[in-house]
Simulated assay, not measured.
Amino acid sequence: MDLQPLIEASLPVRLHVAAVLPAIILAPVLLLGRKGTRRHRLLGRIWLAAMVLTASTALFIHEIRLLGPFSPIHLLSVLTLSTCWVIIRSARAGRVAAHRSAVLSLVWLALVGAGAFTLVPGRIMHQVMLTPQGWVGGAILAVIAAMLVVLAWHPASSPFRRPKGLA
């Protein structure tokens, strides 16, 4: 693992990475833990704030330019912000299925999908995590991959299984 590319990155990139780290850590804790508890609500608020900050900082990253200063990742940021609003509204209204669906969509699309995209050769996180001289980045990715397998297998957090009672 080589942090130098991240240290040398622009301020929005560094803020973006700092914002997404708590979201990555809290996602499996929230998805696999008991729902509706005081702890779930507190950690959920922290997770949601991290996701809003992650999406907001991404709007200021313009390293991939496909349409003026914008790229498809900017559309994902807008989708993330609107999904965060859906998560809040559905939780407050007690619509558990809608809340769950919005959270899972955000986890799998914005964290897993976009996170995988950051590991493409030439991207900063590829340089940070997949350097030939270090094994730490590979070990971290192995742990993340194991967490994804557990999340995908676990019925409460899998995007591939329907919870009982939902048609």
Rank of each mutant, 00 (worst) to 15 (best):
L42S: 07
A27I: 01
V112H: 00
V143F: 12
G36I: 02
A102Y: 00
L30T: 08
V29S: 06
Q127N: 08
P121K: 01
C84I: 10
T83C: 03
G122P: 03
G165L: 10
I87S: 09
T118I: 08
I87F: 12
P5M: 11
F70Q: 05
V13L: 12
W47Y: 12
A142C: 12
T80M: 12
H126F: 15
A114H: 11
I144Y: 06
T37Q: 03
W153I: 08
P132C: 03
V103C: 04
V96A: 14
L119W: 05
R100E: 14
V150E: 00
L67A: 14
R65E: 15
V150K: 00
G36Q: 10
F60Y: 15
S77W: 01
T131I: 08
P28G: 04
A139P: 04
W135D: 09
I124K: 01
T80E: 09
V29W: 07
G68D: 10
V29Y: 12
R14Q: 15
G122F: 07
G44M: 01
R162F: 10
V96F: 14
R123P: 00
A142S: 15
V17Y: 05
A49H: 04
T83M: 10
A102R: 00
L76G: 14
K164L: 13
G115C: 15
D2P: 01
W47Q: 01
G36H: 09
F70I: 09
L75T: 14
G138S: 06
A23G: 08
I87V: 15
S82E: 05
V13R: 03
L15I: 14
L66T: 12
V136S: 13
I7K: 11
M51A: 05
I73Y: 09
S56D: 04
L53V: 06
R161M: 14
L67D: 08
H62V: 06
V52Y: 04
M147E: 07
L31S: 13
V52D: 04
L79N: 03
M51Q: 09
K35F: 11
E8F: 06
S101V: 02
R100N: 13
L66G: 14
